[in-house]
Write a protein that binds this DNA or RNA. Structure first.
Lengths: 198, 198
DNA sequence: GGGCACATGTAAGCTGTTACATGATTAA
DNA sequence: TTAATCATGTAACAGCTTACATGTGCCC
């Protein structure tokens, strides 16, 4: 229910694939879950300590620093199942781009176009990253049981990115219309409106 | 840059459309910006106090309780422009549904299907809400200068919701395949594998 | 010997939600 | 008069990021 549970679920989940260090855990979460999840060091290490205290993960190797790894225990796997079965409550939305566009009248069409273009570029990046992940998954033969589930999240990222691209193109066109209409209103003498869109 | 600035931007932005009370502010933000933004009382009232202290908004009417309203000042409008011009940094993603699906092996295909179906239902809800907003906007003739910008955010919501629908259908099909493959693996004697996918 | 990647942790501080306290107005 | 809605605020707490402190092992 609490957010901490989500961090624990992410940590236990990652360790259910393979044992690793806290440092590697953070990299895995950033690189593999990056398009739909994030955790910082300040979350991961306390979570690992808590999980170890309850016997849900086990520390192996160098106690201090160096090549220590954390492995999930049987109790940890059971706990993971519990955590995953809890209802997935979506977080309250906070989209700073759409906030700016909603009050875009104060920014003007050109500044808005720039924002949308940045968003479009991010979507293309994401599409490229998703394609790269697909290639990696195709090349890597480990964890065959996990693969179909991982592909679902990749597909979600692709659908979202393509939708963002399509919306951005539509928004850019609308803002272009707005700009010329605006210009015609406010600067009637600026230029003889070189080309009107039919 | 800080999150507080975002709250101030949302509050100033809403008041730039029309003056209203803090209570109404919260309702407007929930009902109108709801699909891409959220603020709670605990954010709104301190933000209003802070803005009033700096002369960016002005309290009118009953000082105590009752029919008091807050109105944006000229300085407030200028500040809003500044805030909106600041770079829109996207928040770190946190999608509890995709987290569960990624580790879906531990949940099994059926539990995953249920999650996806819930997500699909939410997307349909959102699509319906966006359609309602479109109707309201078409009927309401006030704020014509804001309308094109508002429509951009509605369109973003529609694109996102449609993408979620398309993905959900794809995911449900994939999970159905997985379920039957799984059943064939784990329960070879259950039924003579009625239909195999080629 | 210096720099870099690996590795573990803590503390401060901000953001944000929730629950609570308080009271006015209005409708049943 | 009781309940619901409108209205304003505060306090406690949870979640999360960032920066810092510390140390190892390896390669150039």
């Amino acid at each position: 229910m609490a957010r901490t549970d989500q961090t624990q679920a992410a940590v236990l989940g990652a360790l259910s694939v393979t044992p690793m260090s806290g440092y590697a855990l953070r990299q895995e979460i950033r690189d593999t879950l990056g398009h739909f999840w994030s955790e910082s060091f300040g979350q991961i290490y306390p979570a690992l300590a808590e999980l170890a205290r309850h016997g849900l993960v086990e520390r192996r190797g160098g106690e201090r620093t160096g090549s220590s790894t954390f492995a999930i225990t049987a109790a940890g796997t059971a706990r993971l199942r519990e955590l995953l079965a809890e209802p997935a409550q979506p977080a309250p939305p906070r989209n700073p781009l759409l906030l700016r566009l909603f009050f875009g009248r104060h920014l003007g069409p050109d500044a808005c176009r720039e924002l949308v273009q940045q968003s479009r570029a991010r979507a293309e990046d994401q599409l490229a990253r998703m394609a790269a992940v697909r290639r990696e998954l195709a090349a890597d033969a480990s964890s065959p049981a996990d693969r179909p589930y991982w592909l679902l999240t990749v597909s979600a990222g692709e659908h979202a990115a393509r939708a963002q691209l399509a919306w951005a193109d539509e928004a850019l066109a609308a803002l272009a219309d707005l700009r010329s209409a605006d210009g015609a209103d406010r600067l009637p003498s600026a230029s003889p409106t070189p080309e009107e869109h039919p």
